[in-house]
Design a protein around this nucleic acid. Structure first.
Length: 795
DNA sequence: TACTTCCTGCTTTTT
DNA sequence: GCAGGAAGTA
């Protein structure tokens, strides 16, 4: 494709973004303004330039899926020449850098990557070691605190130095946690970024090599970057000034060209440290920067956009930008008030059915969004019943399942013998007679001798007080692990190692012989994992060959004065050629960084499926028809976000993201009653509803039949719950004291009355012998009964 | 040591 | 309304 072909169909600001040269550029792009398209075209445009080497391009996307898509699109546009560019997430890019440089930071190359669950487990251990009260210092909160430190690049010692009050405890926990990570030769997600930045700061010569290499850096979803990621960008292509750590007389290279794309209205990851400061201060951070505005929306109808604009305008302190569209008004937004979450799901299913039956949509054009993963259940139940094909993205993640984590813990313990956390996880999986006592004995040996747990297994006979029977088991286990490691050393691919592990460890046999019906799915999951490994190995081998294809190295002439990047680049690239890597380590790396959202069905490939996902997962996607569900105060906006204005603003941005995913048709729905924590709750309409002009909404059902009594129901639920605590029959559903003498009745339960027939409990009052319930019998109205006497039977 | 049965707390959102 | 932990039992 020629360069003018690449500009085809772009509007003037888009063209400007694609072709600009020199200064750093911030592209402020509204929803649906084609920013991914612009990024893709720009990369292709760069590659098609004679003096730009594709290996000098680094593009950062939010997910691996987005990276893969962008990569293949660019290759489609300009050919295999583009294969040498880096397109990846921040985390993958950092891992790739750390893989070659990590020894400079005191880790060994076989380092493990700990995800959130591993980190939490480790922090729980640390908190226990330090005798912290889990009520006062929940591991989850400690981890958040640590994560904030890491995002701000604060080391444990710095944290301790500046901490006061309770933070002193947290800082100590941070230090202990990090020491254990280090001992396990492991990094958590935040470490990946932080360590890379520290690497660059502490080793300017390494940093310079990468600065020379990456002449073009592009970052998508810049509003969702955190401080550490900003620092990383700055190290790679910012102006570092006199503090760059180089000798005064060393030659400096001109920073590479930077382009970031983002929309501060779509910032939805502040909870994990993302800050729109990065966008707002871009022009200060990168002097001489210019800003390009993309305001035309190519995705949605004006109705959808008007709704989105109306909602987001309730956030204060944002630069006003008005999205506009030439797509015409389009259809009205459909509003629906359901009685229960199942009713809501039935409505959604019914609408999808009639859209598809009427030939107005394919299943794959439709998406259902909700705030929390737990909300998917009602939809799944109803969709299964009516036979609507669907797919849930995210939720109980594949890689979070116990059997998968067990298998991966094996692999990690094999690849990284220092990884005590993984090793201790699987030493008795499946059960092989190495119990708690034996494990403690080994742990003590390891602690006394200052050796790793794996080494303690080698010397198990020295473990204090270990039983002979356990000792034999430990020896057998140690031998098995040694055999696995030998397989890795012999260069066997990851899939072979995995298969051997599953067979020899006995995990497969255990599941096969089990009577637990759940174990059948577990077995299937493990087989799926083997398939993933096989695909990975196959891909690793073929990709390497394809990379050689018709690629020719084009020497860069270098547009910078200070140094000639061309010659150095050629040298850097010679070593940067990917090796055929189907190894266990490479596989683990891939697994650790791939989120389940990377498995979003491709629009074409998975044609017959409705997509269910959280609003967060929906970012960056678009669908003809979107159902935005659960619009209730307490659900969306989420209860925990309602008190804090900043968090509420983020919820509103989330709503904005959700609305703007729709191309043509948008449904908004809420439910009056919703089961939460296993019991019903009454939530008022989401405030976001009121923020949308009513004339945009076509209400299919505006009032619930239960609405008349439900208006006061929220308070009633609250007071019933408050009265509850312990020993009463309502609310918790765990009423221990009176369980046997009185029927336990909760709001929402169906009951049978000897005179009035079937009814639904709509509210409860009092407790113990005074307990009363209001029951709705439909046409007979609502009656109040004392449970002690009433002829009520729970159904 | 392993299986059982309570019991608790949990729900934001994810690279 | 479920999973993961603690404590109790075979």
């Amino acid at each position: 494709m020629t360069q003018s072909d690449l500009l085809e169909g772009l509007n003037p600001p888009q063209r400007e973004a694609v072709t600009h040269a020199g200064r750093p550029v911030l592209v402020v792009a509204g929803a649906g303004s084609g920013k991914t398209r612009v990024l893709t075209r720009r990369i292709a445009y760069l590659v098609s330039q004679r003096d730009v080497h594709p290996g000098s391009i680094l593009a950062i996307t939010f997910t691996n899926k987005a990276a893969a898509e962008m990569r293949s699109r660019v290759i489609d546009l300009v050919g295999n020449r583009a294969r040498l560019m880096w397109v990846s997430t921040f985390h993958s890019a950092c891992v790739r850098i750390l893989r070659s440089e990590i020894d400079a930071m005191g880790f060994r190359k076989t380092f493990s990557i700990y995800d959130d669950t591993d980190a939490k487990r480790l922090m729980t251990l640390v908190a226990r070691d330090q005798n912290l009260d889990p009520k006062k210092f929940p591991p989850r909160a400690l981890l958040n605190w640590v994560s904030n430190c890491k995002n701000e690049l604060i080391t444990p010692d710095q944290a301790i130095a500046k901490a006061s009050g309770l933070d002193e405890v947290r800082a100590e926990a941070y230090k202990a946690y990090n020491e254990r990570l280090r001992a396990a030769n492991a990094l958590d997600f935040d470490d990946l970024i932080m360590t890379t930045v520290l690497l660059f700061q502490q080793h300017p010569e390494i940093r310079e090599a990468y600065r020379r290499r990456f002449r073009h850096v592009l970052v998508d979803e810049y509003q969702d970057t955190n401080h550490a990621q900003y620092l990383l960008i700055k190290q790679l292509c910012g102006d570092l000034g006199p503090d760059d750590g180089l000798p005064d007389d060393a030659p400096r290279i001109t920073p590479g060209e930077l382009m970031v794309v983002g929309d501060s209205d779509q910032s939805i990851y502040a909870f994990r440290g993302a800050t729109i400061r990065n966008i707002l201060d871009f022009e200060n951070d990168f002097p001489g920067a210019r800003t390009i505005l993309l305001e035309q929306n190519y995705r949605s109808t004006q109705t959808v956009l008007s709704a989105a604009n109306a909602v987001i305008q309730h956030n204060s302190g944002r630069p006003d930008k008005k999205l506009w569209s030439e797509a015409g008004a389009g259809e009205q937004i459909v509003g629906y008030v359901a009685d229960t979450e199942h009713d809501e799901a039935r409505f959604v299913a019914g609408e999808i059915d009639s859209l598809v039956d009427g030939g107005r949509a394919k299943y794959s054009d439709v998406a259902v969004f909700y705030r929390t993963n737990a909300q998917s259940r009602a939809f799944e139940e109803v969709f299964i019943r009516v036979g609507l094909p669907y797919r849930v993205v995210g939720g109980v993640r594949f890689y979070e399942r116990r059997e998968i984590r067990d298998a991966l813990a094996y692999l990690r313990a094999i690849a990284n013998p220092s990884d005590d956390v993984s090793l201790r996880r699987i030493i008795n999986v499946p059960k092989r007679g190495i119990g708690e006592r034996a494990e403690v004995a080994l742990a003590m040996l390891a602690a006394n001798e200052q050796i790793s747990f794996a080494d303690a297994i080698e010397r198990a006979e020295q473990a204090p007080g270990i039983a002979t029977r356990s000792l034999n088991q430990v020896r057998a286990f140690g031998q098995m692990m040694a055999d696995f490691r030998a397989m890795v050393d012999a260069g066997l691919p990851a899939s072979d190692v995995l298969e051997a592990v599953l067979k020899r460890s006995g995990m497969i046999d255990e599941l096969r012989n089990s009577s637990d019906p759940q174990d059948e799915t577990r077995l299937e999951n493990l087989i799926e994992l083997v398939k993933v490994a096989q695909e990975f190995v196959a891909q690793a081998t073929t990709q390497d060959l394809a990379g050689q294809d018709d690629f020719e190295v084009v020497a860069s002439t270098g547009t910078d004065g200070a140094a000639d990047p061309g010659a150095e680049l050629a040298g850097a690239l010679a070593t940067a050629q990917p090796e055929p890597d189907a190894s266990l380590g490479a596989f683990l790396e891939r697994i650790a960084l791939v989120a389940d959202s990377d498995q979003i069905p491709d629009a074409g490939a998975d044609a017959g499926v409705v997509t269910l996902m959280t609003l967060h997962t929906a970012k960056g996607l678009e669908f003809d028809t979107v159902f935005l569900t659960g619009l209730e105060d307490g659900i969306f906006p989420h209860m925990r976000a309602m008190t804090d204005p900043a968090e509420l603003a983020e919820e509103r941005r989330l709503a904005y993201v959700g609305i703007t995913r729709a191309r043509k048709k948008l449904y908004l729905s809420r439910s009056v009653v919703r089961t939460m924590f296993g019991q019903p709750a009454y939530n008022p309409a989401s405030r976001f509803f009121a923020e949308i002009p009513d004339d945009l909404i076509d209400w299919r059902r505006k009032e619930s039949e239960v609405a008349s009594w439900a208006s006061g129901a929220a308070e009633r639920t609250a007071s019933a719950r408050a009265a509850l605590g312990s020993g009463t029959i309502f609310g918790t559903g765990r009423g221990q004291a009176i369980k046997k003498t009185l029927p336990t009745v909760n709001t929402g339960d169906r009951v049978l009355h000897s005179t009035y027939g079937m009814g639904t409990v709509v509210a409860t009052h009092g407790s113990g012998d005074n307990a009363k319930a209001d029951v709705d019998f439909g046409s007979s109205g609502v009656k109040r009964f004392a449970l002690k006497y009433a002829p009520l039977e729970k159904l």
